[in-house]
Amino acid sequence: MKKLLKMVMLGVAVTMSAQAMAAGDINAGKQKAAVCAACHGTDGNSLSDAFPKLAGQNAGYLEKQLANFKSGERQNALMAPMVANLSEQDMADLAAYFASKKMAPGAVSEDLVEAGEKIFRAGNKETGVPACMACHGPNGNGVPAAKWPKLSSQYSTYVEAQLHAFAKGERANDPNGMMRDVASKMSEAEIKAVSAYVFGLK
Rank of each mutant, 00 (worst) to 15 (best):
G29M: 04
S17T: 15
I26Y: 05
P130F: 01
G169V: 09
H164P: 00
L10S: 08
L54I: 06
D90H: 12
K185V: 04
M179G: 09
S48Q: 11
V113P: 03
N176Y: 13
S46D: 00
A134M: 12
A189V: 10
C132Y: 03
D174F: 08
L151R: 00
H136D: 04
S100R: 09
R121I: 01
H164D: 15
D181H: 11
M91R: 12
V198D: 02
E160G: 01
G29V: 06
A55Y: 04
Q75L: 12
E190N: 04
D181E: 13
S71I: 09
A92I: 08
R121T: 13
P175Q: 12
F51S: 06
V129P: 01
L201T: 04
Y61F: 13
E160V: 00
E117T: 07
K32G: 01
K64F: 03
T42P: 01
M133T: 03
H136S: 05
A95E: 09
K30Q: 13
E114C: 01
N141H: 13
L78P: 04
K147P: 00
A95Y: 08
K168N: 14
K118F: 04
A172T: 14
E110Y: 07
A122C: 02
M16D: 08
K64I: 04
A104L: 09
T42C: 00
F120C: 04
S152M: 05
N176I: 15
A84S: 14
G60P: 10
F120H: 04
N139W: 05
I26F: 02
V159I: 10
T157K: 11
E126L: 10
S46Q: 00
A115Y: 06
A80K: 15
Q154L: 00
K202P: 09
M178I: 15
G116H: 07
N176C: 12
A77T: 13
G44P: 01
E190L: 04
Y97Q: 03
E170F: 06
K53F: 02
R171D: 09
A34Y: 01
G60R: 06
F166N: 09
F120M: 05
L78N: 14
K2R: 14
N173L: 08
D43N: 05
C36H: 02
V83M: 10
V194E: 05
A67M: 11
A146E: 07
A134Y: 09
C135P: 07
D111K: 14
P175N: 10
L151D: 00
L151M: 04
A59W: 11
A67N: 13
V12T: 09
K202Q: 14
D111H: 12
A38E: 08
F69C: 03
T127L: 02
N176G: 06
N76A: 11
A122S: 14
S17F: 14
A13G: 12
L163M: 14
A67R: 15
L10Y: 06
A55E: 02
D174T: 14
K102P: 01
A13D: 02
M1H: 13
V12C: 04
H136Q: 05
G200Q: 06
D181R: 07
L10F: 10
H164M: 11
L4Q: 13
E117H: 10
L78K: 11
L94K: 08
M1I: 10
A22R: 13
V35R: 11
L112S: 12
V113K: 15
M91N: 12
